[in-house]
Design a protein around this nucleic acid. Structure first.
Lengths: 244, 244
DNA sequence: CGCAAATTTGAACGTAGTCAACAAGTGTGG
DNA sequence: CCACACTTGTTGACTACGTTCAAATTTGCG
């Protein structure tokens, strides 16, 4: 079976029926490959489509008047992209590929049909939305109220947690896949200061670096300096309606 | 008819059927009054209920290890509160009343039933969620990448836009209803610095203040220093399924 | 190999934080 | 009705975290 990224993601939360998996698969029928750096959606674009990210990592950001950039989110396989096209005529953010990627475009009314036919999936969309919202608030608190070192540590932990997948198995080493400028734009810092903070984390034996590979040496202590909470834990979906 | 806040809010987006209004009214059957300062929901509480805010203004925030606070959101009538209880066993945030308020509690499975019976409303919940998410990203960009003065201006504009309601009629004067400490906790600044920025905005004739009343003297220029975008504009919901 | 992008480091600067003192409101109880 | 306590707002002086600018070095890639 061709893997169904969205179903796999949601399937981490709850056991889906074959019907539901089939319905989700309908959103991933088409494929569009993207080169690293390619722009999927540009701020103020008029675009109707949504996408499932099926392979690679992407990010969304906004640009301010003065040219500075705020990265809002990193996207991993199984994420929905461009959901704000459900609401706004013009996209509020830009979405680009951090690595070579594959996305599956689909139409807004496909989502409408999905919600009508599968109310439990509609609820699960609400749920994933909400998890995403909480991730955003975590970042907000980090930028608003933690030190530069903490914010950089938070990005490392976030990417690490997402890359190792739902099993949360143990590769403490990984390729960050972000330039220091990108880390800065995600954390509200300059690239120069990100560099200094990485060095400091290294000097304090919290991380190690070797040609792009990052190793988290003491996740416990890193999580503490970053005020990091892994939002995979503590999920409770017992209230969901029965599958139709 | 007892006003149905949720229906009124969603009704700003699209014409609801009587059936749909009735279904939304089911979420507001009970009433709970709250005194200013009362805590509706505390971080890490185990709570199953959700709420509709029917009167007054509230806020949600998180506390960090060092005791500092990040305000995540201000809530106004028609907002859903505690939606993250749909996902997490323990609340990720605290919600308290900024003024005397009334909320309507309801159960999670009521929402499940609503989605099953009224797919269009399920979609509209996704839509409002998404609008809220965009507001969060606006705040994120403000804190990460704009000046202290801009962030303070952004809070003034946000509260102003929400207080004057959907008609967007013109009272440029309003009671902020926030202490400078609260503005600071929303913007990632200290109360002292918020004070200085308010004075600066006043010196530059962008705002005026008289015993708690704030007047926005030049909304255009304020919006410019704050990089403020009113997210009420540009909504397109033509893809919604038919009401059942 | 050669170029462009990314990383690294240092020095000077500036925005926002900290600490402290006082003023102005607000509410409470004597 | 006033006295007192407490919260909130205001201002100044000093500090520090993070930025800016600049230059050197390393890395990745065509």
């Amino acid at each position: 079976m061709p893997s169904v990224c969205l179903a796999d993601r949601i399937g981490d939360l709850i056991q889906l029926t074959p019907d539901e998996r089939e319905a989700l698969a309908q959103l991933e029928l088409r494929e569009r490959p993207l080169r690293r750096g390619a722009v999927l959606l540009r701020e103020k674009d008029k675009q109707q489509e949504l996408f499932v990210l099926t392979r690679g990592t992407m990010m969304s950001y906004v640009l301010l008047q003065d040219g500075s950039r705020q990265i809002l989110r990193f996207h991993f396989p199984g994420d929905l992209l461009g959901v704000s096209n459900l609401v706004y005529r013009m996209s509020p953010e830009t979405i680009t590929a951090l690595s070579d990627c594959v996305v599956a475009p689909f139409e807004r009314d496909q989502l409408a049909r999905l919600c009508a036919d599968h109310p439990r999936l509609a609820c699960l969309l609400l749920v994933t939305n909400q998890m995403e919202r909480v991730t955003l608030t975590d970042r907000l608190a980090a930028i608003g109220r933690t030190s530069a070192k903490g914010r950089v540590a938070a990005v490392l932990l976030e990417v690490h947690a997402r890359l190792r997948g739902p099993a949360q198995t143990e590769p403490v080493s990984f390729v960050l896949g972000l330039t220091q400028e990108e880390v800065g734009d995600a954390t509200g810092l300059t690239a120069v200061h990100v560099n200094r903070m990485m060095r400091q984390l290294e000097d304090e034996q919290l991380i190690a670096r070797r040609n792009g590979q990052v190793t988290l040496l003491d996740i416990r202590r890193l999580a503490s300096v970053a005020s990091f909470v892994n939002r995979r834990d503590g999920v409770d979906l017992s209230w969901l309606p029965a599958a139709r």
